[in-house]
Computed example of a mutant assay.
Amino acid sequence: MKDVTNNFLETIEPVYTPGTINFDFDKFDAAIQAAVSELSDEQLDNLEYNDIKKEFTRFNSLLTKLDDKRKGISKVYKNPLNEFESNFKLSKEPLKELIDKLRAKRDEIDEHQRLLRVDHVRSVFEEKCELAGLDKDAFKDKYDGYSLKGCFKDKKMELKKETIEEIDALILAEYDRLEEYKANIAMIEEQALDYELPAEPYTRALQNDTPLVEILKQMKKDRDAAVERKQQAEAKQKAEAARLAEIEAMAKQSANEDIKAVNAETGEIIEKSKPADETPIKPVEPYKIDISLTFHGGEKQWYQFAKMLEDNFINYEILEENK
């Protein structure tokens, strides 16, 4: 590479030579105090208008003359600085442009080197994940953190020993975590099979970071509740079966008592037995009554009453309505 070192640029610097401003402030302050003491507030009250104007003009002229001199000196000091700053701003522009170009090129190379380091870290993680039987992208979010220059050997595309050890520890921890997770899934599925429960809700809870102990407790509660429901259902079925069996037995007994003889060929009942103390059942004669009803609850109450009549098979006829 061509040596573009410029000794002049490396050594040049602004040089400031301080000037001196001579002014006797002690005498200036003394003269001001003398003037102020000669014209106290009481003395000013006794002066004529013309005398006041005269004194004002005299002292104001003195101060104006001094201030004008101060401004002249200030301009002499400031002009070189303003000129220096203006010239420096103009002259440094080409150097700033060169610096910007160098910075952009440096950043481009730095980014290229960083991407190379990231790619190397990725390959290390993927290789180790494959050996451990893990997803190759399991540590994708770690690549940038291990791509820093401090993680690599000096001037080499090779990770430091301590960096490799950190990566190995991460891989091992993830492997142990997955093995524990698989074992927990197997335990949940086995327990679900034993309890006759679906495994999916409990494996999903494990995926959502619910502790295994809590999941197993919940499974036991759910199993106990299912057993209790099953027992209640079985008891209900048994009770219903017993009730039906009792009804059937009573029906058979009643049928046996009523049938005295049956034709063996046709199954026709020849004669029915009649209990000795049984009296002949007389047919019920319809009973009719004319009645007038007033429903103080209004039409709604009538409809309720009419429904009750119909439910009990009572015929009615409306002769007059709403009088």
Rank of each mutant, 00 (worst) to 15 (best):
D311S: 09
L216D: 12
E38D: 13
E127H: 03
D290H: 08
E97N: 11
Y316T: 00
T11I: 02
D135Y: 02
K217E: 15
V262S: 04
D26M: 04
E278N: 15
R114Q: 13
Q304D: 09
A199D: 07
Y143M: 01
E310K: 14
M157Q: 11
E48A: 09
L116S: 02
E97D: 13
D222T: 10
F305R: 08
R58H: 04
N50C: 05
T64F: 11
D67F: 03
W302G: 04
Q33C: 07
L47V: 00
V4I: 03
P211D: 05
K252D: 12
R58Y: 07
D258S: 08
D29C: 07
V118S: 12
I269Q: 02
N79M: 03
A241E: 13
G298K: 11
V76N: 14
M187V: 12
T64Y: 10
S86F: 03
E130S: 05
F59T: 09
E321V: 08
E257F: 11
F88V: 01
E317P: 04
L197H: 04
Y146D: 04
E299T: 02
L170W: 00
I109W: 05
K105R: 15
Q301S: 14
F8H: 10
F313S: 13
G133C: 01
T11H: 08
E38P: 01
A199L: 01
M157A: 03
L39C: 14
Q301I: 03
Q301Y: 06
E320A: 12
F139E: 05
I52C: 02
E48D: 15
L244G: 07
E190G: 04
Y146E: 06
A104V: 10
P80W: 03
P286Q: 06
K307T: 13
P198R: 07
I32F: 08
E189S: 02
D24S: 02
G145F: 11
S147W: 06
F152K: 06
L95T: 05
L9E: 10
Q304K: 09
Y202C: 03
E228N: 11
E310P: 00
G298M: 00
D137M: 05
D3E: 15
Y316L: 05
P94I: 06
D68P: 09
N22I: 06
A192E: 01
